[in-house]
């Protein structure tokens, strides 16, 4: 976290020296100082921040990729006969998570292929998910639990 503060201070210094505080210039300053910090990271001895950035970027990339796949699969459902669908609502148990993490997980589930989060139980331990095509409810549960939940937790913590 202190490295993030250092990065921001360096970005503001960049804005001061170039006498330009537009968003673009500050963004350039942020990226330049990030590069500098990466360059001297061994001297600082704390690589937590860089790993976090990589994790968040990986999550964003994963989001976009899954959204494309979701649309392609949705198009296939739309154009094929309806009798092939086997929709249903499945309960997925969750680990203990903060509200922000649950929101992230629910959004991720809604934007990924064939799934839509509907409700969270009052104790925040169960997520109800609508699925377009269920072959095996337990397989769906396992996929969400080990695929998405693990990924969200890794990026958020």
């Amino acid at each position: 976290m202190s490295l993030f503060a250092a990065n921001l201070v360096l970005a503001i210094l960049w804005g001061l020296t170039t006498e330009n505080f537009s968003v673009m210039n500050l963004l350039i300053g942020y990226l330049v100082s990030l590069g500098v910090l990466v360059f001297v990271r061994r001297a600082l001895g704390d690589s937590h921040y860089f790993r976090d950035i990589t994790e968040v970027l990986a999550l964003v990339w994963f989001f976009v990729k899954e959204l494309f796949l979701a649309n392609i699969r949705m198009a296939r459902y739309t154009l094929s006969p309806l009798r092939k669908l086997r929709p249903g609502i499945v309960a997925v148990p969750m680990d203990f998570m903060t509200d922000a993490e649950i929101t992230l997980l629910a959004n991720l589930i809604t934007l990924t292929p064939g799934t839509l989060s509907i409700d969270v139980s009052r104790d925040k331990r169960t997520l109800y998910v609508h699925v377009m095509d269920i072959a095996d409810a337990d397989a769906v549960r396992r996929e969400i639990k080990h695929g998405f939940e693990a990924r969200v937790l890794r990026a958020a913590r």
Partner: peptide, 27 residues
């Protein structure tokens, strides 16, 4: 996703029917 979540929740709460060939409804 949040808007979809709110509408789906409200719909299930107000008992908007699921499709007749729905195979499972754990909620």
């Amino acid at each position: 996703p949040v808007a979809a979540h709110i509408i789906a929740r409200a719909a299930h709460f107000t008992r908007v029917p699921l499709w007749s060939r729905n195979i499972i409804d754990e909620l």
